[in-house]
Nucleic acid binder design. Structure first.
Length: 944
RNA sequence: GGGCGGGUAGCUCAGCCGGGAGAGCAUUGGCCUUACAAGCCGAGGGUCGCAGGUUCGAACCCUGUCCCGCCCACCA
């Protein structure tokens, strides 16, 4: 139909080329940078809008969680940019200390080396090389998602500028006494050889045993039996404890027992932490290797005997026979030795919580070491206040409770890590071990000179900071703090943080504490908490389960063999490969077809319901891929019918028939709903609203109605122009509304549609075009009601046709019975809309009884008949009517039941009662119609 | 042991400041209708986990209960 064949769109939407082309163009044009776009037409100050990306691990790759969260962030950013705000989506990557170091150490292990073979400097060089090599992957992948972050401001947590902020914060906290160094019992990872914080320990229930050990009394006689899950730690026992009111053991309190295998005399103490009903009611106390025992030990001033090495083997403090044994080897040996001495009373199976390092999965040990800590309690007070008084809002707000619960019980934060990759702690020691904390070595040297009166050799603390320490500063360190930069002034506090609930404690809480402490302001006003992306069965996606979906594979597609290879490569447990392969082949027999970025994004948005994890549904994604295609073809249709023709770019003087007023009115509602949905972070609402409007209202109805107008032999040129004008306008506005969720296809189409629609954005891109605003004058309830009625009529005819098996091609005449006035306003007036959509040749009014042998549909005040004689079996229509009658009867029964209830009439709101009355009348009329129809149909039936 | 979230159509999920149970996918019948078969037009399918309570009226509010999942916690 196009006059200019060259501009016609291809028949189907092909995302690949479109996406690459537009992203490159946007980025090169500087559209992602603050200040892009319209320069506030009114001259008024533009408000700023900022989102900080949760920085992905620099050496990582994009996973579904990123795809989900970054889609939402990008949608927010794009929407606000279109609204005219000065937007910044700050991007960057995280050095991820332990995770990254582990990767490089694993590479070294492949070469048969450890980091110690290289030494610190060479090892770090190696990590930087790895970062340079793989550090670009994830940011490139982020681009494929269409993320409109400002790449010119991309930072890395170990950039010099950000490192300065880290040192500054450390020094200030230290000087205020909020950072201290001390010997404490911490969680020790014996594989990684570093302390980790409480949050980095995950406890899981595992099968174990409860060993009952006999501790002899020096004076002989009865044993004292203690129950333990960790017999090997008995070598470090310095007491046995009972409950102070436990009558069984009153005589023992203050006496001593003999520690077997060691021969040490240790006291029996009374402590209320002992539960008399557990085990024997006696507990061994090992202050250096158990958190609870440690507290008991402090209360009773017990000695602390460290019996472990950094590898969790037994050290020099234990009897020679056990020295150097791994903890579990030692356990077996000790249990055996006790048994042979008759000191093992019994062993019972016991389920217990085993603490493991979240990275290494090694069982962590409570271990006495020197570490650095942040005193968190004082910081937490302000941080809780900020949420309590609403300066920070959680969405959904239920998470606020989780936040408070943790903050109220917050523990000091162990921030030192005995690894090499990270921010080195800015602390130096003099020859006598005296500590000097300063921003750099020169500063420390100066302090030392003042202290010692001369230059001395200083050694820097070998530890680095917990990665989350620098993450906590992210909202302001990225904007130039401690410098008072214009960016800091413009964009801090930021607007919304989009992140998962799994890092509320790790990250969100700490950003709030640090932000308030160092800027006096909250780091963000809203925390939008997303659920986790899971697989279709609701399982967490993980490499070892073999159920990981790579967002890029959904975008680009992947063939089965490549997918299988990818899922079974580099498994920690290679024996799983077979099962993973089989499951993969079953789930994706043909691999994964390419869906394109927009389909992925739209799926993510539509699944983003609040307060629950999302199970990723490939079927739904397919539906939204189809939606992309639908949109593409709708635009294709519009372009075919508008290019090179009068499109009435000025509204003036054009007729505005009811369908035009209807679709324009619907459009205004959609604008309002989508805008509201963005405001509420209800991306699912925004997505479904647009989906139904475009596919349903626009394609199924408006475009279909446009055909008779545009193609009609005696079409009115004015009306045709008006139709072109309206279809262009509606499409153009809808594209803009859709753009934050589907950036690529909307840009591609908008480029062609906008000029015809008379809409021109500055910069020539939809991403800088204005965000639509509802025009309330275009709301038209009367047009909406009239069209709704027409749709009802069309639907009724279509259903009759389909259910009675009338061939679609058969020309029909519709008979309509009803008040003449109604026939005029409801049918005659809309016949141009009804006839083509219902595929009718004509309609005729009928008075009184309809002819015998018609299919019948009853609307509230009209009866529709289609003559059936000779066309179908009356039995079919009879069955259909019976079904309808049954349905109406049950509805009527319910409504009449209500209206017969005096209590309902007395108590329900008047409008509700009125509505029920109206409903009863309507149902009654319909029922009568069906009833009449059945009577006449009965005449035709071949009754047996 | 405490806390939180969820249990609605075969599947994935909306609806939940109370007043006629919805969408997509799947199923099914009919259509090559000149934008789209990744499409068009129809249809079937749910005692809203269970039991009580409040109410004229409950998927929605309250209580209890059963499942599923998550978080926190030192029961050796």
């Amino acid at each position: 139909m196009s006059t200019d064949g060259s501009s016609a769109l291809p028949k189907g939407y092909d995302p690949v080329g479109v996406e690459r082309r537009w992203y490159a163009h946007w980025e090169a044009s500087g559209f992602f940078q603050p200040g892009a776009g319209r320069s506030g037409g009114s001259g008024a100050e533009r408000s700023s809008y900022c989102i900080m990306i949760p920085p992905p691990n620099v050496t990582g790759t994009l996973h579904m969680g990123h795809a989900f969260q970054d889609t939402l962030m990008d949608a927010l950013i794009r929407q606000r940019r279109m609204r005219g705000d000065d937007t910044l989506w700050q991007t960057g990557t995280d050095h991820a200390g332990i995770a990254t170091q582990m990767v490089v150490e694993r590479q070294l292990a492949g070469e048969g080396k450890t980091r110690h073979d290289l030494g610190r400097a060479l090892f770090l060089e190696r990590v930087w090389q790895w970062k340079a090599h793989s550090g670009g992957t994830i940011v490139q992948q982020l681009r494929r998602l269409g993320a409109s972050c400002d790449w010119t401001r991309e930072v890395f947590t170990m950039d010099a500028r950000l490192s300065l902020a880290v040192q500054e914060v450390f020094v200030r906290l230290y000087e205020e006494g909020l950072i201290y160094r001390g010997t404490r019992l911490v969680n020790w990872d014996p594989v990684l050889h570093t302390a980790v914080s409480d949050l980095e320990v995950v406890a899981e229930e595992e099968e174990g045993f409860l060993w009952h050990l006999r501790y002899p009394r020096p004076e002989g006689g009865v044993w004292v039996v203690v129950a333990t899950t960790r017999p090997e730690t008995m070598l470090g026992d310095t007491a046995v404890a009972v409950h102070p009111e436990d009558e069984r053991y009153q005589h023992l309190i203050g006496r001593e027992v003999l520690l077997p295998l060691v021969g040490r005399r240790i006291p029996v103490i009374a402590d209320i932490s002992v539960k008399p009903e557990f085990g024997s009611g006696c507990v061994k106390i090992t202050p250096a290797h158990d958190f609870n025992d440690h507290e008991v030990g402090k209360r009773h001033r017990l000695p602390q005997i460290n019996i472990l090495t950094v590898d969790a083997a037994l050290n020099e403090a234990v009897p020679v026979a056990y020295r150097g044994l791994d903890r579990y080897v030692a356990r077996r040996r000790i249990v055996a030795d006790l048994e042979s001495q008759g000191l093992l009373a019994k062993v019972e199976p016991h389920r217990l919580m085993i603490p493991r390092g979240d990275r290494s999965k090694a069982v962590v040990e409570p271990f006495l070491t020197d570490q650095w800590f942040v005193r968190t309690a004082p910081l937490a007070v302000e941080a809780m206040q900020a949420v309590a008084d609403g300066r920070i809002r959680f969405v959904p707000d239920a998470w606020q409770k989780t936040y408070f619960e943790w903050m109220e019980n917050i523990q000091d934060w162990c921030i030192s890590r005995q690894i090499w990759w990270g921010h080195r702690i800015p602390a130096w020691y003099g020859p006598d071990g005296r500590l000097f904390v300063d921003r750099d070595e020169a500063g420390a040297r100066q302090q030392a000179r003042r202290h010692y009166g001369r230059d001395v050799e200083l050694t820097q603390d070998p530890d680095v900071l917990d990665t989350w320490f620098s993450s906590a500063l992210w909202p302001f360190s990225t904007l130039g703090w401690p410098q008072q930069t214009p960016e800091l002034a413009a964009f801090y506090p930021t607007d919304v943080l989009v992140t998962g609930f799994d890092i509320i404690f790790f990250w969100v809480a700490r950003m709030i504490m640090m932000g308030l402490k160092f800027t006096g302001q909250v780091p963000f006003r809203t925390v939008y908490i997303t659920g986790l992306v899971r697989d279709g069965e609701g399982n967490k996606m993980s490499k070892s389960k073999g159920n990981v979906l790579d967002p890029l594979d959904l975008i680009d597609g992947i063939d089965l063999e490549t997918l299988v290879a990818k899922r079974t490569r580099d498994l920690m447990q290679p024996q799983l490969a077979q099962r993973i392969e089989a499951a993969t082949r079953q789930e994706f027999p043909h691999g994964i077809p390419p869906f394109g970025t927009d389909a992925l994004r739209f799926t993510m948005a539509s699944l983003a319901t609040q307060g629950r994890d999302i199970k990723f549904d490939l079927g739904r994604m397919e539906g939204y891929r189809n939606f992309c295609n639908k949109l593409w073809n709708a635009a294709r249709f519009v372009l075919m019918n508008t290019e090179g023709r009068p499109c009435g770019q000025h509204w003036q003087g054009l007729p505005c028939p009811v369908v035009d007023r209807w679709i324009l009115s619907r459009l205004q509602r959609v604008v309002t709903e989508v805008d509201g949905a963005f405001g509420k972070y209800r991306f699912d609402e925004a997505a479904t609203t647009l989906y139904h409007f475009l596919w349903g209202d626009f394609c199924d109805w408006y475009l279909e109605w446009s055909k008779p107008t545009l193609y009609g032999h005696h079409g009115d040129p004015e009306e045709q122009t008006a139709t072109r004008r309206v279809m262009l306008h509606v499409l153009e506005v809808a594209l803009r509304l859709l753009h934050p969720l589907m950036p690529f296809i909307t840009e591609e189409l908008w480029q062609k549609v906008a000029p015809l629609a008379g809409a021109v954005g500055s910069g020539g891109s939809i991403m800088l075009a204005p965000w639509p605003q509802a025009v309330t004058e275009l709301l038209d309830e009367s047009a909406e009601a009239r069209v709704a009625f027409v749709q009802e009529v069309v639907g009724a005819v279509r259903a009759m046709r389909s259910e009675t098996g009338i061939p679609p091609g058969q020309k029909l005449t519709l008979l309509v019975a009803g008040e003449p006035a109604l026939l005029e306003t409801q049918i005659r007036r809309h016949e141009a809309l009804i006839l083509p959509m219902a595929r009718l040749e004509a309609w005729q009014p009928v008075a009184g009884e309809a002819p015998v042998g018609c299919a019948t549909a009853v609307l509230s005040q009209l009866r529709l008949y289609i003559p059936l004689q000779g066309v179908i079996d009356p039995e079919v229509e009879w069955a259909r009517l019976t079904r309808e009658l049954t349905r109406l009867d049950s509805d009527l029964e319910r409504v009449r039941g209500k209206l017969a209830n005096p209590a309902f009439l007395a108590n329900a709101k008047a409008e509700v009662v009125q509505k029920e009355r109206y409903k009863e009348q309507e149902l009654q009329e319909k029922r009568q119609g069906i009833h009449d129809a059945m009577q006449r149909m009965a005449l035709l039936r071949r009754v047996p």
